[in-house]
C-alpha cells in the first residue's frame, strides 16, 4: 500500500536515513523501534511528505507519492505528529470533527475511545494524556486506510498507553487499517505490533514479525544492550540485563 525503496536522507553531511526499503500493508500494525536518533521520526516524516528525501522512491498505491496533492494523500494516510500543537482552544468535538471524514465519524470515534464525556471540554483544559487521545481520535476519524503515528503514546501513563495501542489495533483488525507507529517502549511494541521495523543509526537492520524480532540479535546491537527475554504469561518480554541483576 505504501512502499519506500532505497530511501536516503542526508542533511548537512549527516546521513539520517541510509538506503531504507520498507512497506506497510492494510490490516497490519507495524511498530518502528530504535534508539534515540536512529531516524524513526525522519522515516515517518518522509512517508507523510513532511521531510524531503535525498534519494530513493516512495509509492502510495503503486503511484509515486510525490504526484499526490496533500488533499489526495490525506485521504489515504492520516498522521499524528510527535509534538502536538493546539493554538486555538477548541472543544474536543470540534477538534475531532475538523479531522473527520463525516460528522458522524467524529461522534463514533469519540464513543469508541471513551472520549464522549469530554466532547464539550476545551482542549487546553485537558491533560497531556487526554490530548493525545483526542489527537488519536482526530486521526482515526479521517477514516484513511493508513495511519502513521510518531509516538502517540509518549505522554500517556502505562494504562493509557495500552488503551491507545489497543484502540489502534482494534481499528487495524476491524477495518483493515494499516498502521505504522513509532514506539519508544519495546514491550509495548512487541505486545501490540504484528511486525517490527528496527532502525539503527539510519539503517533498517531488522524487518520481521514481532515474535521473531523479539529474539533477534540486532535488537541488542541497536540498543548496545544485552536483553534478557523472559516469558510472562505465555508471552515474551525483554529487559535490559543490568535491570534484572
Amino acid at each position: 500500500m505504501i512502499r519506500a525503496e532505497n530511501l536516503c536522507v542526508v542533511r548537512k553531511g549527516a546521513v539520517l536515513l541510509n538506503d531504507i526499503s520498507c512497506h506497510l500493508e492494510p490490516g497490519e500494525l507495524v511498530a518502528v523501534i530504535g534508539p534515540n536518533g536512529a531516524g524513526k521520526s525522519t522515516l515517518v516524516k518522509c512517508l507523510v511528505g513532511l521531510e524531503k528525501t535525498t534519494s530513493g522512491q516512495m509509492f502510495l498505491q503503486q503511484r509515486p507519492i510525490a504526484s499526490y496533492t496533500p488533499r489526495e494523500r490525506a485521504r489515504h494516510v492520516s498522521y499524528i505528529a510527535q509534538q502536538q500543537e493546539f493554538l486555538w482552544d477548541l472543544t474536543v468535538l470540534e477538534v475531532v470533527t475538523l479531522g473527520a471524514k463525516t460528522p458522524g465519524a467524529a461522534e463514533g470515534i469519540l464513543a469508541h475511545l471513551a472520549l464522549r464525556e469530554f466532547s464539550d471540554r476545551r482542549i487546553k483544559s485537558l491533560s497531556g494524556g487526554e490530548r493525545a487521545r483526542v489527537m488519536l481520535a482526530r486521526a482515526l476519524a479521517a477514516q484513511a486506510s493508513l495511519l502513521i503515528a510518531d509516538e502517540p503514546a509518549a505522554h500517556l501513563d502505562v494504562g493509557q498507553q495500552r488503551a491507545a495501542m489497543a484502540a489502534i489495533r482494534q481499528e487495524v483488525r476491524r477495518r483493515a487499517l494499516g498502521a505504522l507507529v513509532v514506539i519508544h517502549d519495546l514491550n509495548l511494541a512487541f505486545t501490540f505490533a504484528d511486525r517490527i521495523l528496527l532502525l539503527d543509526n539510519g539503517r533498517l537492520t531488522l524487518d520481521d514479525a514481532a515474535d521473531q524480532a523479539l529474539h533477534a540479535q540486532e535488537l541488542d546491537q541497536a540498543f548496545n544492550q544485552s536483553f534478557i527475554r523472559v516469558e510472562v504469561g505465555g508471552r515474551f518480554v525483554v529487559f535490559p540485563e543490568e535491570q534484572v541483576s
Partner: peptide, 15 residues
C-alpha cells in the same frame, strides 16, 4: 481552524 494544529499537521490533514 486546522492551521491551529501547526503547519506540519495541517499539511498531513490535506492542506
Amino acid at each position: 481552524d486546522i492551521l491551529g494544529f501547526g503547519e506540519p499537521t495541517a499539511q498531513t490533514m490535506g492542506m
